[in-house]
Amino acid sequence: MRAKPSALIYSGGYSHPFAETTSVLSGYAEMSGFALVVEEDIDAAIARLAEVDLLVVNALYWGMTQYERYAPHRERWAYVLPDTHMAALRNFVVRGGALLVMHTGTICWDTQPDWIRLMGGGWSWERSYHPPLGDAVVELTAEGRRYSNGPSHFALVDEVYHRLDPSTDCTVLANGDVGEGAQPVAWVRREGAGRVAVDALGHDARSLTAPGHAALIMGLLAWLRVRATGEGEDA
């Protein structure tokens, strides 16, 4: 019998309630059948990739060079991901690992364009932005309804990132709207032998536990677990 699949959540960073959101995500991962470990140190997380089947990035570290308002925070929070770490992340997925990127993970590691390529889309300082945290409506696509057993249309309170520009090889599962037009907020793609899922929602526990969002996350974890376990294939 195959050992229980394992998941590592890389958690922490600037200006978000990561302890809160990682606690919720940990519960979902365990409910989905993953043995779980949480790391708040990127070097330790990269070193453990060989031990896990799924990596969840629920963090916010980037170069912080764009605006002077970040200057007081750079000493603590600014981070440039080394090329060796980026290569390890890519190899993890290409060789069959599963990757789930949550919310601020789409902003991480802005000096590494291969991170956006691996996700299939993400934050661009030239194009992307988000309105203030507030009421939003999420609509699952036809493909998204295949991944979730929850409502196809639901409301939540969140930051809805705009202009993440998922690439043409991504399957968009959900669009979010705060009154400025629908924006892709969740998608999946394949890279080599691995699977990648991106959920750009999830600012706090209110978002993660909204019933429609919770059902979508559980669906993503089920899809990623197929890759992790080899228990059958799907589309």
Score class of each variant (00 low, 15 high):
Arg146Glu: 08
Glu139Ile: 06
His85Ser: 14
Val138Arg: 07
Pro151Val: 05
Arg163Ala: 10
Leu164Arg: 05
Gly122Cys: 13
Asp114Tyr: 07
Gly96Arg: 13
Thr104Lys: 10
Val138His: 08
Thr104Arg: 04
Trp125Leu: 13
Asn175Tyr: 05
Gly134Ile: 05
Leu140Phe: 00
Pro82Asn: 08
Gly144Gln: 02
Leu118Ala: 01
Asp110Glu: 11
Pro82Ser: 10
Val94Trp: 01
Asp135Ile: 13
Gly122Tyr: 06
Val93Thr: 01
Ser148Arg: 07
Glu159Ile: 13
Leu156Asp: 11
Thr84Lys: 06
Val185Phe: 05
Ala88Thr: 12
Asn91Pro: 02
Gln183Asn: 04
Ser124Leu: 11
Tyr129Lys: 07
Ala136Ile: 08
Val138Ile: 14
Val157Arg: 15
Ile107Thr: 11
Gly120Arg: 04
Val93Met: 00
Val160Ser: 01
Gly120Met: 03
Val137Thr: 14
Gly134Gln: 11
Leu81Val: 13
His162Gln: 09
Tyr161Leu: 00
Ile107Tyr: 06
Ser124Asp: 15
Thr104Ser: 09
His130Leu: 00
His153Ala: 14
Met86Ile: 05
Leu156Ala: 13
Arg90Leu: 10
Thr104Ala: 07
Thr106Ala: 13
Ala174Ile: 01
Ala155Met: 14
Ala174Tyr: 03
His85Gly: 08
Thr104His: 07
